[in-house]
């Protein structure tokens, strides 16, 4: 199987309160196309920072990230923005939907940014919301949706431009156990339908659903193994 994502000796340092923090210290990863990887570890171990570096929303202090053969770490801001729009989907713990927009309009947003024609983007947004089980809630605004529903809209938004890679940071972190289980099932379905996934999580159930689990501690990978039979 070919590697979709290759990270080599990734490092990220930043200053916080006058101290130099080594958030990620020499992480190397190969993620195959279609893989489903969970990054786990204690709080502050560098999981989210690693995810940001892999997705091109943060610039590494050293090392390299390559997605689909393109060096993300060398991209200028505008290139990285365009790359994220078309190639990478992001899901965050707090959903971060636009409160003034309906579910349909939230999903349309990245499509509009990619200059997809209106008719096509409405069709695509409807299709995605039906896919995540919200076909009947197209015109609801975020405030009218439950946490689980908002996260589903966020997943639909992340998949809008058919990215090959979906990055999720604690996607079940704000959800109760029952809703979290539904979300885990949905993410599994997204992966089964061909999207490569990397999730950062404290949720053992979510990590348990991944094909591969990477353990981090103090900014380094301390364990990286495939789960049985996956």
């Amino acid at each position: 199987m070919t590697s979709l994502l290759v990270a080599r000796d990734l490092r990220r340092e930043y200053h916080m309160g006058g101290e130099l923090v080594h958030a990620v210290r020499g992480v190397s990863l190969d993620v195959d196309d279609g893989d489903y990887l969970a990054v786990v570890g204690p709080s502050g171990c560098g999981k989210s920072t690693l995810l940001n570096l892999l997705g091109g929303i943060d610039r590494p202090s050293g090392g390299s990230v390559e997605i689909g053969g393109e060096r993300v770490d060398r991209m200028r801001d505008t290139e990285a923005t365009r790359f994220r729009l078309l190639r990478v989907g992001f899901v965050f713990q707090r959903f971060y939907l636009m409160p003034a927009l309906t579910a349909l309009e939230n999903v349309e947003l990245p499509l509009a940014e990619a200059k997809v024609a209106r008719r096509q983007r409405v069709d695509r947004a409807r299709e995605l919301l039906a896919y995540v089980g919200l076909g009947a809630r197209l015109d609801h605004r975020p405030a009218q949706l439950s946490g689980g529903e908002q996260q589903r809209v966020a997943i639909a938004r992340a998949l809008a431009n058919r990215p090959r890679l979906l990055l999720a940071d604690e996607p079940t972190g704000e959800l109760d156990a029952h809703t979290g289980a539904d979300m885990i099932a949905l993410l599994g379905q997204v992966n089964a339908d061909g999207t490569t996934m990397i999730v950062v999580t404290h949720d053992e159930d979510l990590a348990g659903a991944a094909k591969r689990v990477v353990h981090m501690r103090d900014g380094v990978v301390v364990d990286d193994r495939r789960q049985d039979g996956r």
């Binding site: 801001d77 505008t78 365009r82 994220r84 729009l85 992001f90 636009m98 409160p99 947003l109």
Partner: peptide
């Protein structure tokens, strides 16, 4: 700010 940076994260241009 959270919403705005997430917009940037999902690929919305700075100019937008």
């Amino acid at each position: 700010l959270g919403e705005i940076v997430v917009m940037r994260a999902i690929g919305v241009a700075r100019a937008r």
